[in-house]
């Protein structure tokens, strides 16, 4: 068990290292002088030289990478060229809206998607199933920003029930925080619900075809308990896996949703940084999001040991 944990944790190191190399090379491999790209179109030679000096661009690539990585391990992501601020601070100041949005979306999603998917599987082929799956295809096909604007148009402009855009910090009142997060997380949850409901249905369907479900029925167990006790408990591993994998969708969605609803989070920061060609910020944000994704999936891997007794060595 302990060795399994250790092995899983160690296995993420090469992946994260490769991610870091990739992100590092991204800037270095661009056609042209990275310093000139960073400095922007209106920089003079002195400014470019200064940037080159700062990034150690004259050093060999290998040295540059370890220099960069070493700084990151000390929490130093460099200075943002656009905001003229430490990237670390910048990120810290932008985390709250992103975290709030993500958590609220996940809670909404799991509460809606898992029961819907299970119901659809249980009623396979019925109208209930078809309607749920129909909505799932629809939800999966509508881009987040289209849903976002449609929701704003309906609930804020036409009905006037909810504020249009913007964010309120949780310390300034939970009510306002919640109200302003409601539409963004709803918009973001749609695609997420569509995906997870569908995968839940597939997993539960697969389990319902297993022999032990027949055994449970042969015992005279009620259908509800067959579903809850035998099917869902066995479908838990694939469902949780899918939730973990769909964090990639969630993170992409966060970037777009924050732009639509002007939530001053990491997603909006990413877009601003890209538009401003603020590379230290871009690198830091991507690295951070990737790390979060890898860690979440690591945690999910570890949860298997609780969910499935067969994975325990």
């Amino acid at each position: 068990m302990a060795s399994y944990l250790l092995r899983r944790i160690l296995a993420t190191i090469p992946v994260m290292l490769l991610v870091a190399i990739f992100i590092f090379l991204l800037l270095r491999l661009t056609p042209g002088d990275p310093a000139a790209i960073i400095a922007g179109d209106y920089a003079n030679d002195a400014q470019i030289a200064e940037i080159r000096e700062k990034l150690g661009l004259d050093e060999p690539l290998f040295t540059q990478f370890f220099y960069w990585l070493g700084n990151i391990f000390q929490g130093d992501f460099g200075e943002s060229f656009f905001y003229k601020k430490q990237v670390g601070e910048l990120i810290a100041s932008r985390i709250e809206p992103t975290l709030s949005l993500s958590l609220m979306t996940i809670v909404l999603t799991v509460m809606i998607a898992v029961p819907l998917g299970t119901l659809a599987a249980y009623r396979q082929g019925s109208w209930t199933d078809r309607i749920i799956m129909g909505f799932s295809v629809l939800g999966f096909s509508l881009p987040v920003f289209v849903i976002g604007y449609a929701l704003i148009w309906l609930f804020s402009l036409e009905l006037g029930w909810l504020p249009v855009q913007g964010y309120q910090r949780i310390s300034d009142g939970v009510g306002g925080w919640f109200i302003r997060l409601l539409l963004p997380s709803l918009a973001l949850a749609v695609v997420f619900v569509a995906f997870i409901a569908r995968m839940t249905r597939t997993s539960v369907l697969e389990v319902l075809g297993e022999d032990y479900i027949r055994t449970a029925r042969a015992k005279g167990q009620t259908e509800r308990k067959v579903l809850m006790r035998h099917a869902l408990r066995n479908a838990a591993v694939p469902i949780v896996t899918v939730i973990g994998l769909s964090f990639a969708i969630l993170i992409g969605g966060v970037v777009v949703t924050e732009s639509v609803f002007t939530l001053p989070g990491l997603g909006l920061l990413t877009v601003e940084a890209v538009l401003a060609r603020d590379y230290p910020t871009i690198q830091a944000v991507i690295l951070l999001f990737s790390l979060v994704y890898v860690v979440i999936n690591l945690l999910i891997d570890l949860s298997y040991t609780v969910l499935d007794p067969r994975i325990r060595y």
């Binding site: 090469p14 992946v15 990739f22 990639a248 993170i251 992409g252 970037v255 991507i286 999001f289 994704y293």
Partner: peptide
């Protein structure tokens, strides 16, 4: 695995 670890839209 490493490529998959970077969320698609960000990549």
């Amino acid at each position: 695995d490493a490529l998959m670890a970077i969320p698609a839209i960000l990549l």
